[in-house]
Design a protein around this nucleic acid. Sequence first.
DNA 1: ACCGTCGTACGATGCTCATCGTACATGACG
DNA 2: CGTCATGTACGATGAGCATCGTACGACGGT
Lengths: 120, 120
Amino acid sequence: MTIRVEGMMRDSQDTWLPQPDLDEVDIGEVLQALADPVRLQIVRLLAAAGEGSCTSLDVPVKRSTVSHHLRTLRESGVVATRLVGNTRLSRLRTAELEERFPGLLVSILAATPRARQLVG
Amino acid sequence: MTIRVEGMMRDSQDTWLPQPDLDEVDIGEVLQALADPVRLQIVRLLAAAGEGSCTSLDVPVKRSTVSHHLRTLRESGVVATRLVGNTRLSRLRTAELEERFPGLLVSILAATPRARQLVG
DNA sequence: ACCGTCGTACGATGCTCATCGTACATGACG
DNA sequence: CGTCATGTACGATGAGCATCGTACGACGGT
């Protein structure tokens, strides 16, 4: 069951920050969100760690900037943010993104940063 | 057979503007190229028409701006430009992009502009 | 109650870049 | 050879935005 309270959402035990319905999200906004190098790094870190907060993410910018990037990613539908105590844990909306834009996130995460590595 | 002359390339009958090897292209640059709404529209038009020139593409910007966008798309590895007479015909590097970033271009082109259409 | 941590809001700043107008080189056409 | 179209280079301009510092509210631990 899911109820809305003041723009937020409560799902079982967790409270989530408001997030857009992916059906109403344009791929242009998603691409614009993923275009920034810091945000792309955040997406990669979230894909590897599962969850991440404003201070736990290892990116070369200040906390307030990370907060701004996580807000951008959330408003574009890329991540969902869960409130636990005093911290906010964000995670990729992997399944929903795969349903709305099949192959997009997978191809981005699978892509090596630059040239392909020659192994063996 | 392919030879390089002054940065350009000659392939059978056609001469092509210099373009990067996709193995040396970072996905961040590609995403940044596709993030602009006009360039995304150009990509969609090229996917539909196969080829397009600076004046044939129906976008709401001036010719010099279209030229700038096509240059950006070419330098990021998204399109290839062929010289024929006085015009330059650009096309998507569909096959090469699919090999380098599997599923990326497909997912972008398959995505509807906003919400999914309910058919039937 | 006190203090440290966490995240955000806000204003300021500086840089990137999309856009345009213009000028110019090139090729097609008569 | 003159004329027109095509595309690009270049400079100017304006807007968007990434970044930071600071202040503030909320929560947890002691």
